[in-house]
Design a protein around this nucleic acid. Structure first.
Lengths: 222, 222
DNA sequence: TAGATTGTTAATCGATTAACAATC
DNA sequence: TAGATTGTTAATCGATTAACAATC
């Protein structure tokens, strides 16, 4: 265990969600204990690195045995802060928005879409999951009223920057951008671009006309 | 310029698509020249790193001036292999599949969805974009006939592993997994998990009850 | 010429990995 | 006890960054 407040490398924080995901899956399969070797196999991470990563937060395993799946999952959830519910504001109720609202992975980690916005009158008033679609004009007020800090942008590219600006102004602190547009955010707002194409392009490098060379270091990204 | 065949760090290959994306956006804005400083600002990458990254492939800029946007974009596209069209097979024609088929970012980088599969008889025979939805049973044959090497999994979680297996068997070399399931792929197949939730969880760490500490190193991921 | 910005070196910094004692 | 696997150290490896000469 390292002293509280010590700097924890970004890479460690990036891998924790991956470990958590694998642990939840293992739990569904009925496994109660897991070794760093098995965890590493499923997450495609070096077992030594997993053990090293975890020491930043304490020691959660038992020598000779491995890790208790339940306990480790709980600990990681508490470290990340995903042990309680987080509300999301979703902007855009088209195909993409609908898919996001129905996305299994969100609820699994305590994320709840509690507000949906669209500017198409045909959609406003309709339902997406359990939530009524609101007019875009209500964005600022609703975000503030519900104290939402995470926003998801699933609108046509042309509207991406404007929506981002409005979310930031409304007090949103984390924005998940589902458009391929490079948007700008003010200081203090964290932006995530979920552009699978960037990952495809990255893979392409190893795919195209490079058969004589070595492939990518691992079969999987992230 | 480094000798051909020299090892190029993975991080460099990961950043090239980011630079490319920013360059394409700058080009749309009508800019003809860009400095590493400006590029770094937009991509949120240290300017020195951008220059260092590019030296792996040659020298594309002009001292005192900067980089020609067109030229640099072209060079990166050729390095990555995105200067020609790549066909995609999309499995799952629901909301998510529809959103992916309509996704701007794909065509922008030369990715074309040329085959769509679903096992719902109500969807088979219908259209998604320009493509007729085929029955899942035709997957193997179609993938082989069209010589498709990239597959996109946009099916319900329960079907994710089976679809992945079938794509791999059919000869697909890159799989983009849009489900939250941790799927396994055989040697030689590259798997990308596009799970925005993992990124949200990662951000959560910096968000929750840690106001007294420093935030994440940068305002943006990827 | 003066100002700007690249290409490139060298130093720093941090992350990964192997190895093994501790211990279940 | 013997086997297994963690926690942790120490070594390696690689990536990032600052600085500056080259040059437009």
């Amino acid at each position: 265990m390292v002293e509280a407040g010590a700097h924890i490398p970004e890479g460690v924080i990036e891998r924790l969600p991956l470990y958590l995901n694998v642990l939840l899956q293992i739990r569904e399969d009925g496994e109660e204990t897991v070794s760093s070797a098995r965890l590493g196999e499923l997450a495609r991470v070096n077992p030594a690195q997993i053990r090293r990563d975890l020491t930043h937060f304490g020691s959660f395993g038992r020598r000779g045995i491995g890790y208790d799946v339940d306990t480790l999952a709980d600990r990681i959830q508490r470290i990340l802060g995903s042990d309680h519910v987080h509300r999301l504001a979703l902007v855009g109720a088209g195909n993409l928005g609908s898919a996001i609202a129905a996305y299994d992975g969100l609820s699994k980690h305590g994320f709840m879409v509690t507000a949906v916005f669209d500017n198409d009158p045909a959609r406003v008033g309709g339902r997406l999951g359990d939530v009524i679609v609101r007019d875009m004009r209500e964005l600022e007020q609703t975000v503030k009223e519900q104290g939402i800090s995470i926003g998801v942008v699933a609108v046509p590219p042309a509207a991406a920057q404007e929506v981002t600006d409005r979310l930031a102004t409304a007090g949103i602190r984390v924005i998940l951008n589902y458009t391929p547009v490079v948007v700008q955010v003010p200081e203090g707002v964290t932006l995530h671009n979920t552009d699978p194409v960037q990952e495809l392009l990255h893979t392409l490098y190893y795919l195209s006309a490079r058969e004589e060379q070595a492939g990518p270091p691992s079969g999987r990204d992230r």
